[in-house]
């Protein structure tokens, strides 16, 4: 049964359904109680489940993460909200030294099945410290899963997978996609964490994107089609574990690729994708893989962010650079 809903509503539904299905799932963070979160993702949860299942904490991100880890060590499945990407940094040590390593340190005797929800990335006119693309920090840490949905149906399904996972999951929610409506069938299963999907078939070149860059890639593919060029779009979805098979099969099928990501390019997930695909697909490639990423600058002020964000035109220009004259 499909319905038209926003990603915010889909995420709220996922939390509600997970909490109904499993008493050990608890939700906490800053302003997630009666207010329902600054983006209203937890709207109504305290009313339905009570303030022992969905509750506000003191304003301290390391405290939130650390308490979640302890609760997970003792039989719970906490979901925590970091209010904004850049406000999650006080919790960094708890994420990388404890959530990520507890299973390993104890050879599986203790596990940390927590979900760290982070509204992330830009494109919403946010002031400084509200728009970081912080995925590389987490993706670089063994022991964490890192996922980013790009539409409501996937947001629902991925969040259900994340809550069910026995490993810590960094769940990156693209803020600029929160309130875009799309048709979705929330009862339909979505592929598990660790799986990329082809969002649009194409034969000339492959666009590889995740999170907020996926709609940009799809729009670019639509525009290219008007000009007679067939672009395939791969949605990575799961940054860690990375689905080498799906991504590399896609690139081999076209022989050309552009990676699109909002984060700064240097030392980034997009760089990792290029390296992995090149290592595996070199003999299928007709041109070096190009990247369209954010610049290597602190996230810009609202009136300047349009210069920074990957745009359809920038993606199409990169596609034009894929050495077609040699074909």
């Amino acid at each position: 049964m499909t319905e038209k809903l926003t990603m915010a509503a889909a995420l709220n539904r996922a939390l509600r359904d997970a909490m109904r299905a499993d008493d050990t799932v608890v939700m906490f963070g800053e302003d997630v109680g009666p207010l329902g979160g600054v983006f209203r993702i937890t709207d109504g949860l305290t009313a339905e489940f009570g303030d022992q299942r969905c509750f506000d904490t003191p304003l301290a991100e390391s405290g939130i993460l650390g308490m979640a880890i302890g609760m997970a060590m003792n039989g719970m499945r906490p979901v925590v909200e970091m209010q904004f990407d850049a406000f999650a940094y006080p919790a960094f040590e708890q994420v990388v030294s404890h959530a990520a390593k507890m299973r390993n340190r104890t050879r599986g005797k203790l596990t940390v099945p927590i979900v760290i929800r982070i509204p992330y990335a830009g494109g919403i006119g946010g002031v400084e410290h509200h728009c970081d693309s912080s995925e590389a920090y987490y993706a670089h840490t063994p022991g964490l899963h890192v996922v980013a949905p790009s539409d409501p149906a996937d947001a629902y399904g991925l969040l259900r997978h994340a809550i069910a996972s026995d490993d810590p999951v960094v769940f990156l929610e693209p803020k600029k996609l929160y309130f875009a409506r799309a048709e979705a069938d929330l009862t339909a299963p979505v592929p598990p964490i660790g799986t990329a999907v082809i969002r649009r078939p194409g034969t000339d070149a492959t666009l590889i994107a995740y999170g907020p860059a996926v709609p940009v890639a799809l729009e670019a593919a639509e525009a290219a089609a008007q000009e007679g060029r067939s672009l395939q779009v791969v949605d990575v979805r799961s940054i860690v574990p990375f689905d080498d098979d799906t991504v590399c099969d896609a690139v081999r099928s076209t022989g050309r690729a552009v990676v699109v990501a909002e984060a700064a390019g240097f030392g980034s997930v997009s760089a990792e994708v290029v390296a992995r695909v090149t290592e595996r697909c070199f003999h299928w490639l007709h041109a070096p893989i190009r990247r369209v990423t954010g610049f290597d600058i602190p996230y810009p002020p609202p009136k300047l962010e349009h210069f920074h964000l990957p745009s359809v035109d920038r993606v199409l220009d990169a596609v034009d650079d894929l050495q077609w004259e040699d074909a």
Binding site: L65, G66, M67, A68, G70, M71, M73, N74
Partner: peptide
Amino acid sequence: LHAVGVAH
């Protein structure tokens, strides 16, 4: 903090 979580 983990101690607080376990106790909670």
